[in-house]
């Protein structure tokens, strides 16, 4: 008899996975998603829950280097996987170039979609199919931003893609922010 029909708890499954270089061996119920594992059990809350349905991209993480929606991944299926979250990309003192570019371009407001945007952008550049703003827009369309920072996000990614120094905010002209 399956757990859905009975009142019994589902049998936990043993999983070993690496998150940001740290190996975790866990005993998990099958219904724990990768996102909920990160947020509620490993307390890595950088990955955000915006819809829990693969429709917003806020939960984007890198699994074995590929960007995926962690809300639709069952953690038990990721045995042996290497997960990179926003916390693993950089820290406030040692920002990843993509993180620095997002700050320099004011590529966010509320910041809630931001970790997903950044992980997605890093994943996208690894994929190698984004060669300019038009392709960036299409290939980033799985990351919604309700604050509407899209143009700044594309500028930030384009700078990071070209590996060039992002213009620094702070100069007293509007153009500098563009």
């Amino acid at each position: 008899m399956s757990p859905a029909q009975s009142g019994s708890a589902p049998e936990p499954v043993s999983v070993t996975l690496s998150v940001n270089g740290q190996t975790h061996t866990l005993s998990l119920e099958p219904s724990v998603t990768l996102l909920d594992l990160l947020r509620e059990r490993l307390h890595l809350t950088g990955s955000k829950k915006g819809c829990d349905q693969g429709q917003c991209g806020a939960c984007t993480v890198l699994v074995d280097g590929r960007r995926v929606n962690s809300c639709l991944q069952l953690a038990v299926m990721k045995d042996g996987a290497e997960i990179t979250t926003i916390e693993g990309l950089g820290t406030p003192d040692r920002l990843h170039p993509m993180q620095a570019a997002f700050i320099a371009h004011d590529a966010f407001q509320c910041g809630y979609c931001t970790p997903g945007q950044i992980c997605s952008a890093v994943g996208m550049l690894g994929e190698g199919h984004a060669h300019g703003p038009e392709e960036i827009r299409e290939l980033m369309s799985g990351n919604l931003c309700r604050c509407g920072a899209y143009t700044n996000i594309v500028d930030a990614i384009e700078d990071a893609r070209r590996g060039r120094e992002a213009p620094t905010l702070g100069t007293p002209s509007l153009e500098a922010a563009e």
Partner: peptide
């Protein structure tokens, strides 16, 4: 630049 920018882009 936003003073809370580093916290937001690093998930902190």
């Amino acid at each position: 630049p936003r003073v809370d920018g580093a916290l937001k882009v690093t998930g902190r």
